[in-house]
Amino acid sequence: MPPSRYRENEESKAVWVYLEQEEGTLENVSLEVLSKGRELADVMKWKLVGLLPGSGVHALAKEAITRGADEIWVMDHPLLTTFTIEGHGAVVYDAVMLGKPSIFLLGATHNGRDLAGRLAVRFRTGLNADCTNLHMDEKDALLVSEVSGFGGGVVAMIEMQNHRPQMATVRPGVFALSEPDSARRGKVIDVPVNLKPEQIKTRILERVRSGVVDLTRVPVLVVGGRGVNGDFETLKKLAEILGGDVGATRPPVDAGFIERERQIGQTGVVSSPKMALCCGLSGAFHLLVGIDKADVVVSINSDPEAPIFEFSDYYIVGDVSQYLPVLIQTLESQQEISHA
């Protein structure tokens, strides 16, 4: 098969990570990938490099270093303020061709997927998308990516012999964040950016970063039923702690406690969260259709006969209003410990 733009014998022994930022904040998944990248680099005794395109993003380089990067390549340019596939694609391509890393990792965000899909073809290399795990085959110095298909029904291990870079995108939330080490030192390298306005073909006419409810892909879905007695504030708080969002069964929607766009089930949203937390709902079939695809189902209901328990991985028989405050408190204190 035709070779990639550079091959394994030209590679530099390094793991590169694309650092995605939005309005001066690094995406969580970028930090997660950085943490994993550190692990992979340590196994091979390689260098970990962060690639940071944007405008006025120098401050973020330091943060990335505390998460394990040895070097940060900063590409600072006004045309990189917001993500465009042409702008970010061009500068990332140039940087990778300059550094020729063995491995290049990205977070599987909307932008990360766009960029990876396009660049992999530009490099004429392979790409493992939406990986659920990564490790090194030390003997051959190859990256092994775990990907899943068929709705999570099949997992495959994928590697690539000769084409470079070895590219993978990683699903958000898969890897744990490493503890930041503020004493860590690294190099910040300014990469000159050659970008002309006419290269950017895509114009952003409008951008809205909040207010759109999309429950189909939230990581955690907290669903409230009749047994919540309209107290969706507590549920929202819980969802917030867990980085998720709130849905509801039909009765609370009917009663006007919560918007209809949050109704889960046959005539509402079908969601596939990592976890569905069912509070005070009995588990009618038309609801279950909406959380069928959750990886884990946890439920709390006072009725020991509630059908939802048959459909749960873990459950508590008890009153939601009694358990949720304790649960929130416990989760919050855990959070404090991990941030301390």
Binding site: S4, V154, V326
Partner: peptide, 27 residues
């Protein structure tokens, strides 16, 4: 021939059966 990546392992993840574990003890 034109695919640089190779699949080294493949496994079926068992069909999801809910665990149905009841948590017991004090509240």
């Amino acid at each position: 021939t034109g695919s640089p990546t190779t699949v080294s392992e493949l496994a079926r993840v068992p069909v999801r059966e809910r665990k149905r574990i009841k948590l017991e003890g004090e509240a």
